[in-house]
Design a protein around this nucleic acid. Sequence first.
DNA 1: AAGTGGTCTAGACCACTTA
DNA 2: AAGTGGTCTAGACCACTTA
Lengths: 251, 251
Amino acid sequence: MRVESARVAIVSGGGCVGSVPKSGYLAIKGYISTMIRSKEWPPGHLLPTETELAAQFDCARATVNRALGELAEEQIIDRRRKAGSRVRDGRERMANLKIQFPCREIEAMGKDHRYVSLKREMCALPMLLQNIGETRLEDQCLRTEGVHYASETPFQFERSWFRRNAFPELFQEGGKVKAPCITLLEKNPFYHGSLCVSASKANHIEARHLGIKVGEPLINKEYILTDGLEGTPVAVMQIRYKPDYSISCIF
Amino acid sequence: MRVESARVAIVSGGGCVGSVPKSGYLAIKGYISTMIRSKEWPPGHLLPTETELAAQFDCARATVNRALGELAEEQIIDRRRKAGSRVRDGRERMANLKIQFPCREIEAMGKDHRYVSLKREMCALPMLLQNIGETRLEDQCLRTEGVHYASETPFQFERSWFRRNAFPELFQEGGKVKAPCITLLEKNPFYHGSLCVSASKANHIEARHLGIKVGEPLINKEYILTDGLEGTPVAVMQIRYKPDYSISCIF
DNA sequence: AAGTGGTCTAGACCACTTA
DNA sequence: AAGTGGTCTAGACCACTTA
């Protein structure tokens, strides 16, 4: 009975077609979304208080609080104590971008993943892996280059650096060399870090191994991975894609 | 007293340094995060039930439910009724990417935004703006080209298409031409849509207006905007950036 | 000082999923 | 049939912010 009255409020309030909310807090969320997206409540508009909405939907304030909390997390509204909830100006939005390491990205396309190692050498710690304020620079680094194949087609050129004391197992490998990303994921599937997307021209090595011409545009992803507990940067992965590759997301 | 016991559990449970949770549900969240990120609970591990955690932290089950609910939303754990909560294998992550229209992106850098219109012409509806299953193709389209300046430096080359019946105001403009994105944001700040990032070579027009050489790599963003209430595609914006531009996010 | 959101409690009923 | 998570209630106390 109570839920029914909320549903009626939605349909009459905004004409939200085809989305029947299953439960109370989603009904409230849908009603408010509709009011905002139909511009009945424009940016800057002050929403009713939680208490008022609870009365309007004949539900507990906690239910309203959940609905408004999710809308705030989705950056549709701004909430401040005493000041109330306001419709945001929607000029900045967030989209969800999927983060996938090379091996996983190829598997997700339904293709076989194969890694061909081109280079493995020790080097000094690059700037990107140096902690801010860090004085001990004695730590060594493994620099790798290799190509990831998606079912016999070269798909990604990878150039990476791994801090030695974070990945001792990478320095003990003999025989067939595994893709570095596989070792990473086996070690810790919950890395945090940053991703930077840019464009560059293919140099001779990249062009040869990706099967394109020198100077063709490449899309680059550069991951900087940090250790989950301490936040120390432990690895840099630079991944280059042929120009037919693109990155998509919805918002 | 109750909160205190939860805090003790965190510190002893995982050695989470420097992050003192302010309230109960964050304490529980922090404890579980630490157990997972320290690999004490590996991927696939079955978490205690909500009831067990509520007893352990001496709090209500709703408090545990909030903590677990947020961890599920962050894709750290998977939750299923009767089956319980399990640690996810972390091979796919999500990062938040900021969506900013050209004018807003330049303002956010603290620079002045100026738009120079290069072309405005009518054309047929491009494929990208055709609704799936749509039969009425009589709708016309405005095609624009222009450059966005960030304090006198050309920053973005924009090529866009706007469905006429969605943006009648764009077709009535006289005098100085506003940047299309400004008209869009004034009309509706809450567009949904998709973003596709790719790379290409600068052609003559793009190179001349961005002040770079023909053939230099560009980063492209292509937005397809849909109407908030009906989901119809109403505009396509192709934005090209010089190769010194990059897109960053954290995860 | 007063209003508003943030969080928590103790209990409830239900939905879903597995055994 | 039984266990688990999903959601809701009615009430409470507190934190923050504005007037």
